[in-house]
């Protein structure tokens, strides 16, 4: 069975400055036991999607089921099977970390003893044991984030919704969190996580859905997406702006159209078909043409590369703030 099914979700926000169509017919399926990475730039509609699936927001159109229950008609049944960690840590600042976890455990209907045991377990898992008795107000941003994630796990939910779970975490905490998520998945949980980093989706997700302007514009496994966007990139920064056109010619020789030039940064990016060998070839050609370089390297594709390939435009900020209007001509 599919753990999450969303069909044609539509959500429009009304503000003083006008309306924003945050979701515009979004379809989504997450099979049981899968990890779906919802990848998209600012304002794409990731949080809105998560909030609808977590029963916090009613869709204006379309329907969604989570764990077999309709998110509107059977919201309480949905809540019993999910754990949510929102984009911004929402834990009680005036309670200690432990008190927060015990409260969540009790609200998830654990007995008092179980709630305490579970709290200790999670504090350990998220490296918060030393700070357990401290008021959350004194926590650092990353500690709050970890506590927030721990709270989402108190009820051992079958389904986890994580909205940008690693934003604000240092690399070590991020890796630790990835491990916790993988561990939950091994135990049968289904995860829907949003992220702006292709790398994160790649590390965790069994499949990725790319969202832009409230609809899914691509879906597939990380490998499929990477194949589609041409894998790694070669990036060079030339020393002399005047040398840009000549350098571009050399780099674009067999990159075709997919060659990006940033004049201000004197940077050229092309897909690295052939990897290191191709990079060495380019370096030899540039040297032969006596073009001096400030920087050169092979790098993984980023969200920007995905967007450039899929939509022809860079991942822009879709968060058309008040007054800016809908750049994409969405419904007024």
């Amino acid at each position: 069975m599919d753990a999450v099914v969303a069909e044609g979700l539509v959500k429009t926000y009304t503000t003083r400055a006008g309306t924003v169509r945050a979701l515009d017919g979004l379809d989504l399926v997450v099979p049981e036991g899968a990890v779906l990475g919802l990848l998209g730039p600012n304002g794409a509609g990731k949080t809105t999607t998560v909030r609808i699936l977590a029963t916090l927001l009613r869709p204006d159109g379309g329907r969604a089921t989570v764990a077999g229950h309709d998110v509107v008609a059977e919201a309480q049944a949905v809540r019993a099977s999910i754990g949510l960690s929102g984009q911004y840590a929402a834990v009680d600042e005036n309670l200690t970390g432990e008190e927060n976890l015990v409260l969540f455990g009790r609200l998830y209907r654990l007995s008092k003893a179980d709630a305490h045991a579970r709290a200790r377990e999670l504090l350990e898992q998220f490296a918060l044991t030393a700070a357990a008795r401290r008021v959350v107000k004194t926590y650092s941003g990353g500690m709050r984030r970890r506590l927030d994630l721990a709270c989402a796990l108190t009820g051992r939910p079958r389904l986890l919704f994580l909205d940008e779970p690693t934003t604000g975490l240092d690399p070590r905490s991020r890796n630790a969190l990835w491990d916790v998520i993988r561990d939950r998945v091994r135990q049968g949980a289904t995860v829907l996580l949003t992220t702006q980093y292709l790398e994160e989706a790649d590390a965790l997700a069994t499949s990725i859905a790319v969202v832009d302007h409230g609809t899914i514009i691509a879906r597939g496994t990380a490998d499929e997406l990477k194949a589609q966007i041409g894998g790694e990139r070669i990036e060079v920064v030339v020393h002399d702006p005047a040398a840009l056109p000549r350098a571009r010619e050399i780099l674009a020789r067999d990159a075709g159209d997919d060659c990006r030039v940033d004049d201000r940064a004197r940077r050229i990016v092309v897909p690295a078909h052939g990897g290191v060998l191709r990079l060495m070839q380019i370096l030899r050609d540039l040297e032969a043409a006596a073009i001096a370089l400030d920087d050169v390297g092979l790098r993984r594709p980023t969200l920007d590369d995905v967007f450039l390939t899929l939509t022809g435009h860079a991942a822009e900020d879709g968060g058309n703030g008040a007054g800016a209007g809908n750049a994409d001509g969405g419904a007024p």
Binding site: L56, R79, Y88, A90, E93, L107, R109
Partner: peptide, 11 residues
Amino acid sequence: KGLIDRFRSLP
């Protein structure tokens, strides 16, 4: 502070 929303997602 998002706490009400947080609680609203609980059963």
